[in-house]
């Protein structure tokens, strides 16, 4: 999904939503290329399960398509922010259904496509360790940490997604990071992150 057609490259997501609503199939491809990786990454880190994350990402994108007809190009929410919010809510629903989160059962499910067996395994181990540590956090802390430090969103953006104040976001991320650091303290050397 890399490389957008020149006609679409300069268009913001909101304009693409309007094009999509008008039946432009190219807009769907570009929006998928821009937003699906973010939705999937967010869901994968929060849920710690790749297959579940794919289901959530697909469902969130479906809701995005359905919302396109009523999308306002100016003054409305940013599609990315809107999508993160949907993903966050879908993840919360799944975590509630699951009960208290168990550590990741299948670390390989989070493996990335890094070439080489050893590199791939090491990457999978790192992600599994991170996911397991994230799983120990309360839902809101986990969402805030993922959105801030993995997805790279600003605190105001996260506040809009989680429907809380900016100060609450700062508190959530700070507490979440402290808990993560404690959970991962003993794993850094084993995972090739030794200082």
């Amino acid at each position: 999904m890399s490389g957008e057609p020149p006609a679409y490259a300069a268009l913001p997501d909101g304009a693409l939503m309007v094009l999509f609503a008008n039946g432009d199939p190219g807009a769907a491809r570009v929006l998928t290329g821009r937003l699906l990786p973010r939705a999937l990454s967010h869901a994968a880190r929060v849920l710690g399960d790749r297959a579940e994350a794919e289901d959530v990402a697909q469902e969130a994108m479906m809701r995005l398509w359905r919302a396109a007809g009523d999308w306002r190009q100016d003054g409305g929410a940013q599609p990315a922010t809107w999508l993160y919010r949907v993903v966050a809510n879908l993840c919360t629903d799944r975590l509630r259904r699951r009960g208290r989160m168990d550590p990741l059962d299948d670390p390989d499910a989070a493996a990335d496509g890094t070439p080489g067996v050893e590199a791939r395994m090491l990457q999978a181990d790192r992600l599994a360790a991170l996911d397991a540590a994230l799983a120990t956090l309360p839902d809101r802390q986990r969402q805030a940490v993922v959105l801030r430090h993995i997805e790279g969103l600003s605190n105001p953006e996260i506040a809009a997604i989680l429907d809380v104040g900016v100060e609450a976001v700062e508190s959530l991320t700070a507490r979440g990071k402290r808990a993560l650091a404690a959970a991962l303290a003993g794993r850094k050397e084993a995972l090739g992150y030794g200082d």
């Binding site: 999904m1 699906l36 990786p37 973010r38 939705a39 999937l40 990454s41 967010h42 994968a44 880190r45 794919e54 990402a57 989070a110 990335d112 496509g113 990457q123 790192r126 992600l127 360790a129 991170l130 540590a133 430090h149 993995i150 790279g152 990071k177 402290r178 993560l180 650091a181 991962l184 850094k188 992150y193 200082d195």
Partner: peptide, 17 residues
Amino acid sequence: DGLESFFAAARGAGRPS
């Protein structure tokens, strides 16, 4: 807190199939 390396590993791991 040494978390950045873990976060970096997670970035880009969301490439969809």
